[in-house]
Nucleic acid binder design. Structure first.
Lengths: 302, 302
DNA sequence: AGTTCATGATAATTTATTCTTATCATACAC
DNA sequence: GTGTATGATAAGAATAAATTATCATGAACT
């Protein structure tokens, strides 16, 4: 009792055509090949499925039940095959694209139109979340692709990380604070530096860049967006680091001043990450290219 | 896209054990054999089903859906296999046994207890009908086995016919009709011979034995059982042929007389018939043996 | 750091399965 | 009869799938 899907397909073909020769043709094999498999199947069943009559091939009473159940097997096998086909190659559903909050508002205006123009077959569902949540979503299968600014930790299903470009940091102060440029981060009083909430990678990066003690929390500030921080800065409540990509939007604020840092390597690297085992690797690589392309074509303000 | 049940079974085994080696053991194959099939399956899918981590094997998001559907395929395949197993070998349901009316009341008292004793695993549903209806039922699948007294016609699914024993005919007359024995059938006035309704094979056989013109119907008689005919005979309305197996019952009637025929070969042969392609051939052959056995063991009267 | 162990992948070979072509057997039609 | 249609059978070639042996890699533990 060890039939194969192939045997079932042959048997159903015979049942449908009522003719071994035509069933073989339908199955794109020679008639003896099909005959042999049917014979084998019948011997495995211990009884005949078909009555070979001169007037044509008919189902035995056993065969009627057998074929009905065999069709059920084939139906579910076809459902599986359809699922696989729909999944492989080009995605047939919106790609779930997660982006960290310190990137999304600044990059999306560039990359979303570019993606729609250059990869019109792809659709997207964008979600904004912190790095950890994004990586979880990736591993759980809730997300297909994430844009982050750190190297994901090992452990768990492996990820492919595709670097996009570097994003240097600059210092934002209120307009009325005189500063010589380029600024040395070490010259800034630690308690003047405004940071995002815990959990934002940009907070950790800013802490590292300024050589601060991460454990200390001023506690009085709570900001989940750079725009909010910029408002604090504009009101003279302190200074902050900003990633360069944020400048086009945030530097419009006339009440703040932007200052380059004396260490030009202070910054972050933006990257795409996806499950190494994704079916959409090719699409993701194309997306990375498109995103890199947006850095050149529209000459950024900053 | 041409996966096999075997590949699906391997994949489900890996999903269940989370371990290629144990999955191979469970599937009773070597680990490389299973690995190869999984790899092949994944390449057919165009994407990975499993993430091979050091901490164990996990399903990819795609793999979760894939395995769920694969299990559905395997479930229906197992249902088919279960059906086949339940069908093959010993029948697991009552065998539908059809018997012609001129045999059933006379043979059943012998063979039913014998079958129950000698083949206790088998159960029966007995139905009484004329030959043509029985053969139809056999071909339609409503009956498994029939006991008839003629050679079934060719055409339609082929039947296996297993002869049981000969059943000679005798003449029944009313008690007050003096007759010299053995009787020559030709000596009987045709219009004195009482016959069963159309469609009973025994009617045709009696007509043939007496050399009558089958077309002619006396019209005034309508009898569907030999017992009724015997009552007619007892009342002096004519004579009839009786099969020997009927005598034990019918010859108890004190108002009739039984006379052997001068041609000892006049009679019928009882036979079992079943579909050549039945799964129960072995059981049917055993049944034939049991029925033949009943002719010897209980020494029949006359 | 180096060693060992566990685990899955890979390679080479053998074994099973499934195909193909050619041919046969049988019933039916004319 | 003779030809035609149909499914079964035979023999050998082609594929598919198994086996054993070995490798590669990362984790665990001296």
């Amino acid at each position: 009792m060890n039939f194969s899907l192939r045997q079932l397909r042959y048997a159903v073909a015979v049942a449908q055509t009522g003719h071994f020769g035509r069933a073989a043709e339908l199955s794109a094999v020679s008639q003896p090949a099909l005959s042999q498999q049917i014979l084998l199947l019948e011997s495995q069943c211990g009884t005949a499925i078909f009555d070979r009559l001169k007037s044509g091939v008919q189902l035995t009473p056993f065969g009627r039940d057998f074929i009905a159940r065999a069709q059920e097997v084939l139906r579910s096998a076809e459902a599986l095959e359809g699922f696989v086909l729909s999944y492989s190659g080009k995605p047939n559903r919106p790609l779930r694209f997660g982006i960290i909050p310190t990137v999304a508002p600044y990059l999306l205006p560039d990359i979303f139109p570019a993606l729609q123009e250059q990869l019109p077959d792809l659709r997207f569902t964008i979600s904004e979340n912190r790095t950890e949540a994004l990586l979880d979503g990736l591993l759980e299968g809730h997300l297909d692709l994430v844009l982050i600014a750190t190297d994901p930790p090992a452990g768990g299903p492996r990820l492919t990380v595709e670097p996009l470009f570097d994003d240097p940091f600059v210092l934002a102060t209120s307009q009325d604070v005189p500063t010589e440029e380029p600024v040395a981060l070490s010259s800034i009083p630690p308690d003047r530096i405004l940071l995002l909430d815990e959990g934002h990678c940009f907070r950790d990066q800013a802490i590292a860049a300024c050589g601060l003690d991460g454990g200390r929390g001023s506690g009085t500030f709570s900001a989940t967006s750079l725009s909010t921080i910029v408002e604090f800065v504009a009101n003279g409540q302190g200074v902050t680091l900003l990633p360069q990509i944020a400048l086009r939007k945030e530097a419009n604020n006339p009440r703040i001043a932007i200052h380059p840092l004396n260490d030009p390597h202070t910054g972050r690297q933006l990257r795409l990450a996806w499950r190494e085992t994704t079916p959409f690797r090719t699409s993701f690589e194309a997306i990375a290219d498109v995103i890199r392309g947006t850095r050149k074509e529209p000459p950024t303000l900053n």
